[in-house]
Every structure is written in C-alpha cells, then in structure tokens.
C-alpha cells in the first residue's frame, strides 16, 4: 500500500521521509560524545528556501478563490516556518556546544516539522486541484439532469453544444488524474467509469434524438423516454462514482482498516 496517494507528492516527499527516519534511527543508535558538525550553512539555505516558499504560498492563498484552500493552507505554512525556526535554533545551539543534546532533539523535531508541513501543504494543494475537477464533473451532472426536458431538435443541438466541451474537459482531467494516482484500485475504477461515460454519451444523444423525432411525428414516446432516462441515470451514476473516487486517498483506507 503506497503511503502517498499521488506520484508527484510521493516523488517529493518519499526521499526526505526516508532520510528523516534513517537519521532518527542513526541518531538514536549513535553513542553519546560525538560532536555534531557545523550546520550553519545548510540550515541557512533551508531557512531562505522556507522564506521563499512561505511568500509564494501566501500569494497563492491571496489569489485563490478556493475558500477551503484559503482556510487550510496558512496552518501548513506556519508549520513549516516554525520548523525552520527550530533548525535555526538548533544550529545556533550547536555552534555554542557541538555536544548539545537539546540541539539534536531540535534538529530532529525541525526536520520532521518541515516534512509534515510540506506534506500538509502539498495535500492542501492537491485537494484543491481535485475540487476543480469535481466542479467540472458537477457541470456534467447538471446538464444530464436537464436531458429529460429536451423536446425539440433545436434544444438538443444546444444541449450537445453545452455538454461536449464539459465532457471533454472531465475526460482529459480525470485521465490525467488517474495517471497521477499511486493507488491501483482507484486508478482502475476511474478508468472504468471514464470508459463507460465515453461509451454512454453518444448513445444518450442518440436516444434523445429518437425521443425528439418521435415526439415531432406525434408518435408514442414512453419507451424512448424511458430509454433516455435510463442512459442519463447510468451516466450520472458513473460521474458520481468518479467524484467519490477522486476524493479518496490511501489514508482514508488505512483509517477504514
């Protein structure tokens, strides 16, 4: 079971996560009495990078119209900033006393804090990206909801004109998202649902066309109406399943276990 649910997050955090745990073990196993190196230079580099990240993060928050992102991201930035301060303090303490035990603890705490903060930050951002895709999915759901009130060819043409770009965007976004996920089962569900949506869309339009034509000819439309509603409902179910799976992370399933 992968720890990080997207390949991007995994590629950024996994190496640091491994190094932090390795170092914690090394640190715990190390015999007391070893002098610590001077870490002033690398700590300063980290501090500068954190300052930059915080600046970029704040700009992103201010420019975003995603209320959840605006609410959740500041805490992650503060976490990273606080961790950076711990590293600075540790470095200063080690300069004064290379054997300082509290300084070592601060170093580990700082490293873990930066890892947690950046992890939260990436998750916040990732969730925001997912919300953007879900917004597009919901547009498709809204169009599907009006399929059953389309009664003229003119309205049907407009319906197709409205639905097509939305479906194309959903298809492109979900396809890209699926490729980003590390969780195989989630990927498979997204691929399956997206395939169904792509197959069902032209059949639905065809079904709607038959309904409209029968109606124009004054013929019975009960069966055509039922068929159209069934297809729209199937597409709605598939899109809802896509929305559900997009929101899943491997962490959810760990909690479930």
């Amino acid at each position: 079971m992968p720890v990080f649910h997207t390949k991007t997050i995994e590629s950024i955090l996994e190496p640091v996560a491994q190094q932090v745990s390795r170092l914690v073990i090394l640190h715990e196993e190390a015999e007391d009495g070893n002098a610590m190196p001077n870490l002033e230079r690398p700590v300063l580099a980290v501090s500068n990078a954190v300052a930059n990240l915080v600046k970029v993060g704040r700009e992103t928050i201010n420019n975003s119209d995603d209320q959840i992102l605006r609410q959740e991201m500041p805490a992650s930035l503060q976490r990273v900033e606080k961790a950076s301060k711990l590293l600075e303090e540790a470095s200063a303490m080690l300069n004064a006393d290379p054997y300082s035990q509290p300084a070592r603890k601060k170093l580990i705490e700082g490293a873990r804090g930066i890892l947690q903060g950046t992890s939260n930050l990436l998750l916040c951002f990732d969730e925001s990206e997912v919300r953007k895709i879900i917004k597009e999915c919901k547009k498709v759901l809204d169009y599907l909801a009006v399929a059953e009130v389309i009664e003229t060819m003119e309205d049907l043409v407009q319906f197709v004109k409205d639905l097509s770009p939305c479906l194309t965007k959903v298809s492109r976004d979900v396809d890209a998202r699926e490729k980003e996920l590390t969780h195989m089962v989630h990927r498979e569900i997204l691929v399956r649902c997206l395939d169904s949506v792509k197959t069902l869309a032209p059949i639905l339009i065809c079904g709607m066309k038959i309904y409209v034509q029968l109606l124009a000819q004054g013929k019975k439309v009960d069966e055509a109406g039922e068929n159209r509603n069934y297809l729209a409902a199937r597409m709605t179910d598939e899109i809802n399943e896509i929305i559900r799976v997009l929101q899943l992370t491997t962490y959810d399933e760990d909690e479930w276990d």
């Binding site: 950024i12 640091v16 170092l23 190196p37 990078a49 170093l107 950046t118």
Partner: peptide
Amino acid sequence: LRVGWEQLLTSIHRNINEVENQILTRDS
C-alpha cells in the same frame, strides 16, 4: 552522522524548492 545531517538538510532544501515549484506550476 555528520554527513547524514548535511545530506538531510540538502534534501529538505531541495524538497522545499520542489514544493514551491509545484505551487507555482499549478497556480499559473
């Protein structure tokens, strides 16, 4: 241990830069 800490801080540095790039890329 000496090399370990320096390596970790270098990785953290790189990690922060990558997070920043992620934000900038997706934000644009």
